[in-house]
Nucleic acid binder design. Structure first.
Lengths: 200, 200
DNA sequence: TGTTACATGTAACGTTTGTTACATGAAGAC
DNA sequence: GTCTTCATGTAACAAACGTTACATGTAACA
């Protein structure tokens, strides 16, 4: 049985996904949920506490969804980077990522207000993306580039909504890495022993 | 002789570069400039009008700075993409771009409030970056990818401040394109006649 | 049955928001 | 010397903000 607070968190997540963070206000939020600002403060102590709990819940959900994807992809021939992209732009995950990108940007310009909600996910994130590369190619520059391609394309998707073109672009990147590898083959070594195929 | 309003715009630009857009408020802003909210409204009619004029001024400055760079780079051997990157992360341009990225994100989540300030710069922007490619390689996927690499790396720079690593990453991308071209040479044609060297 | 904890409604607090009314200087034009 | 225009100061407006005080209902447990 869910507590009233847990039910509220669920509804709040939905509201935040739709309206974003930057102009969040308690009264309109409460009204949209059919409750009152009084209640939100009662359950979450403050607006700050509310945001903390809701964002936390969102990140947990996202991690679970990602874990499920990773389990399911076992023994699939698709490229890791493409799998990751498909997962990110899936209808059920996309709004979460969109909001986290907004949070990231707000925190850059206003760390005092938003920095506190950023977990050390950024590093986990890039570490995860890095596993799409064979170890021999996992240089800082290549890992940074890989993360940037992902971020940049996701941002472009956010701005234009063009799933088709952005997906073509990430396939283009995978092809680019393949072709470059052909011209200048990576040193094979421990990398050959890793489980992933090392194909972008 | 500058009008009072033009002087104000200059000071406002400086303030916005420092504080960002998302929590802009007239009274703190006026106090930081040694004036009053009354005056700002007097000169700009409304907060909305103020933002419109100031952001417009910023985009003009940025375009002028970019134009100057393009003139100066004539007959330089550096790759176009690297030149563009160096220009973007230069101390005098970086804060402007940072703010425009914030604007872009805010507009995604809240078009009603921020969409009006977005010019059709996005398209100009990507068209400009595209000139770093030889015509034969200027496919939608490649142009999108190129823009995304730039955006993604700039975002990473905003978050981490690591100029060195992000610059290494863009050089890595240039190398990648070069190597891929070696393995699968682009069809030469009209592209060979363009002024740029077509080397990333 | 009385007590305790959770949940909620109604109002208000003090502050900040963008904006406006009203009055007053300073400077140049006739 | 009056008139007009630009610039500014002082106060106030209504609205929205996050938060709190106080009272009340419901349900479970003693």
């Amino acid at each position: 049985m869910k507590t009233r607070k847990e039910i509220l968190v669920d509804e709040l997540v939905g509201y935040l996904l739709e309206h974003g963070l930057s102009d969040l206000s308690l009264r309109p939020l409460a009204e949209a949920l059919g409750t009152s600002a009084r209640l939100l403060i009662y359950h979450f102590k403050s607006k700050e506490g509310l945001l903390a709990e809701v964002l936390d819940s969102m990140q947990t959900r996202l991690r679970m969804s990602l874990g499920g994807m990773i389990e399911r992809r076992a023994g699939q021939s698709e490229r890791p980077l493409k799998l990751f992209w498909d997962w990110a732009i899936a209808r059920e995950n996309y709004p979460y990522l969109k909001l986290l990108y907004e949070l990231q940007i707000l925190a850059v310009q206003n760390p005092a207000a938003y920095g506190q909600y950023l977990q050390r996910n950024a590093s986990n994130w890039s570490a995860l993306i890095a596993t799409a590369l064979p170890e021999a190619e996992r240089t800082p520059a290549m890992v940074t580039l890989l993360g940037a391609v992902f971020d940049g394309l996701f941002l472009e998707l956010m701005s234009t909504g063009d799933r088709k073109r952005t997906t073509q672009a990430i396939l283009q990147f995978i092809r680019l890495v393949d072709d470059a590898r052909e011209a200048r083959p990576a040193i094979r070594g421990k990398a050959a022993k890793t489980s992933n195929t090392g194909r972008g």
